[in-house]
Design a protein around this nucleic acid. Structure first.
Length: 187
DNA sequence: GCTGCCATAAACAGTG
DNA sequence: CCACTGTTTATGGCAG
């Protein structure tokens, strides 16, 4: 049976209020983009005999991220900026559930930072990579990003790192790429 | 009730 | 040899 049964497994209120964890439909969309990246990657991926100093995670971003960057992924802050930020002209039907699974419009870093984020690991990784200037990030950086934006993991058991790696390997949306190869200007 | 997805844990292999 | 990374398998739970 369950030799290891965490006391608070999915304590996350499954209330439909934050249906971000579930319904990873857009993620599929990314899978399509990943397909493109596959071909792209295959283009310049000709049996690199070079040493893989550091493996980065290349991820082909799509318009999905566009809404993200515009929303305020800069620091995963609440998209609802009272100062009148350039909020994307969402559909008039505000009651319409956002297609973004990683929509953090209802997430408060101030209070949610110490709690388990309502996002799935896929979303967290996604956000981390998208936050990167090159849309690629080494695992270590992903850890750092998550820790920076979600202090919850700082005190959380190390198991989350395993989960991150697991997601990276499992999700086809993330592609492993060599560090350089696309990083010119590096003596 | 079944299926699909996600989370977590663990084992294992490869490399620096 | 150790630490880190990357892949794979197994299990459990929840939602549709």
């Amino acid at each position: 049976m369950g030799p290891t049964m965490p006391p608070s497994k999915k304590a996350q209120s499954p209330s439909s209020g934050l249906g971000a964890t579930r319904g990873l439909s857009p993620l599929y969309r990314e899978a399509e983009a990943a397909d493109l990246s596959l071909s792209l990657s295959a283009s310049f991926s000709k049996a690199e005999d070079e040493e893989l100093t550091s493996l980065s995670w290349l991820h082909e971003s799509t318009d999905l991220l566009n809404s993200f960057s515009h929303s305020g992924l800069r620091s995963v802050s609440p998209l609802q900026d009272p100062d009148g930020h350039p909020l994307p002209p969402h559909s008039p039907s505000s009651s319409s559930p956002s297609p973004d699974p990683c929509d953090s419009s209802q997430y408060d870093l101030a209070t949610g930072a110490n709690r388990k984020p309502p996002y799935s690991f896929s979303c967290l990784i996604f956000m981390a990579i998208e936050d990167a200037p090159s849309k690629r990030l080494p695992v270590k950086d992903i850890y750092g990003w998550i820790l920076e934006h979600f202090p919850y993991f700082a005190s959380a058991p190390t198991g989350w790192k395993n989960s991150v790696r697991h997601n990276l390997s499992l999700n086809k949306c993330f592609k492993k790429v060599d560090k350089d190869r696309s990083q010119p200007g590096h003596p």
